[in-house]
Design a protein around this nucleic acid. Sequence first.
RNA 1: GCCAACGUAGCUCAGCUGGCAGAGCAUCGCAUUCGUAAUGCGACGGUCAUCAGUUCGAAUCUGAUCGUUGGCUCCA
Length: 586
Amino acid sequence: MKSDSMALETMRHSAAHVMAAAVRRLYPDALFDIGPSTADGFYYDFDLKHRLTAEDFPAIEAEMAKIIAEDLPFCREEKSRSDVMEMMSARGQCYKLERLADIPEGEAISLYHSGDFTDLCRGPHVARTGDIKAFKLLSVAGAYFRGDEKNRMMQRLYGTAFLSREDLDAFLKMREEARARDHRMLGRDLDLFSIQEAVGPGLVHWHPKGARIRATIEEFWRREHYRAGYELIYTPHIGRANLWETSGHLGFYGENMYAPMEVDEQRYYIKPMNCPFHIQIYKSHKRSYRELPIRWAELGTVYRYERAGVLHGLMRVRGFTQDDAHIYCTEEQVEEEVRECVRFAIAMWKVFGFEDISAYLATRPEKAVGDPGRWEVAQRSLKQALEAEGIAYELDEGGGAFYGPKIDIKVRDAIGREWQVSTVQFDFNLPERFEMVYTGSDGQEHRPYMVHRALLGSLERFFGILIEHYAGAFPLWLAPVQAVLIPVSDKVAAAAQTLAGKLRAEDFRVQVDSRPEKIGAKIRDAQMQKIPYMLVLGGREVENGTVSVRSRLEGDLGSMPLEALMEKLNAERHVALKQDEPSGTA
RNA sequence: GCCAACGUAGCUCAGCUGGCAGAGCAUCGCAUUCGUAAUGCGACGGUCAUCAGUUCGAAUCUGAUCGUUGGCUCCA
């Protein structure tokens, strides 16, 4: 397995060389940067006059196929720095010269030759170009030299390669699958949400069906928070400039904040964060150690200016609602509080069908505020929480924010993609800036520990992930329309309305499709809208007091009495929610 | 913000080197009253993203703006 992945990486890197060689044959003026393998393929960065587009791919692929058919050997050659420098200068390969300068003095400098193509490269490579089994070019995009936006923009050509044709086909099929469940497309087709030019980019409209799902999520979220010992609060959407000066956001987050509005000669900013408001509630009166831990949660809507190029459907927006909470506690309580946060996050994700959960632990960076002893306490608690809950994690040493260490939790969706979602982070900055204190049992003032945490992240992004995870086919408890009633003819239309009324009285979300269409057409529409159940009602059913039930997944289930249907639906909608059991997160 | 591509009816798309704006689906109307993935006929629907320019004439060519997409950078 390990050696397989090594072999794959090596082959992809070699494929990048072959692609570069092909580009050189087709565009002799091309300057080369680097061409590494990536998680699912490879790329190579070029600087060339011709603007590459997907239309150029067939020609490049054909040239690559030719090079592979030539079955050229990859030959390694070590050379002196000056020799390589001379060679690259002669060819005008300025990017290669810069890369050469990066190689530390004393380290071996190697070239790889394959036919007439030579590249400065550490290797390793496959033995011959013919070892590249299956490849395909995927896309072209701009990329800054060395990833720095101050540098020149290169043309990055992406491709992928696999050890077999079957693997490549499987990969392409998976890509197709990911495209088919794109939340932007499903959001429109299932009438869940929209983002409109007339209103502005990154601003989300939740249509009735999307809103119904959101309301269901929010109800569940609130109930679980109360059960877990949180209090819920509401705070304003704007606040005076002075508040943001105290918090420091105007200084270090100002670029992401919207311009202020002036009211009564005071400047007000729309909030990019909820924290200062939560802190103000904390500071509304003197706090005792007896009140701690304090856990306050809010579905807090914030607005952040995100650069135009980064917006993406629901995944990256400019206005969004965080499922935010802040915990204020004593040092003794830190460990337990952090562990509860992690436990709560895991429980939450499992309810929504995400089972594969892992994490990053990011620790103290070079530049940091706060007492190192407190950082130590915080980091230890985060580590212990992950280990106690059995969550696999990667350590990102020095990757924390300047104000505190954090855990980021990631989940894998139904088609294996990872999403970074929940976060638990300490803050040693805001309690100082706002001079937050509590009175201890010793009668002295102490600084509380402060933890920010979001379980779902933002409702918008969470919704996007959820749509793609379920491919729009939501489980019964989330489905905006749980069942559609299909009267066979007008003769039973009234009976259908009566039945719908009975189901609504039991909190089922049902609609009646009374259009003068054939049953087949109504079934088809319901299937395409991914409605879990279709209830066909005709003379037979009305006479017997039954309904004919069709499941979205299993097809025709035959007739059953109304009571049996309700029982079935009830059992199914309560599976995830476990409504009558304690949540186990308190 | 940067590089590139794109923007024609609610949706998916056609519209050739500049010469009358099109189809399917959806919507609406009429007929059909139907038994588990598309009933038939008809109608409505567009400042061709916006604004300038070139031209006798622009959906088509040029520029700017807005927006979208794929990446880069960012993601306190």
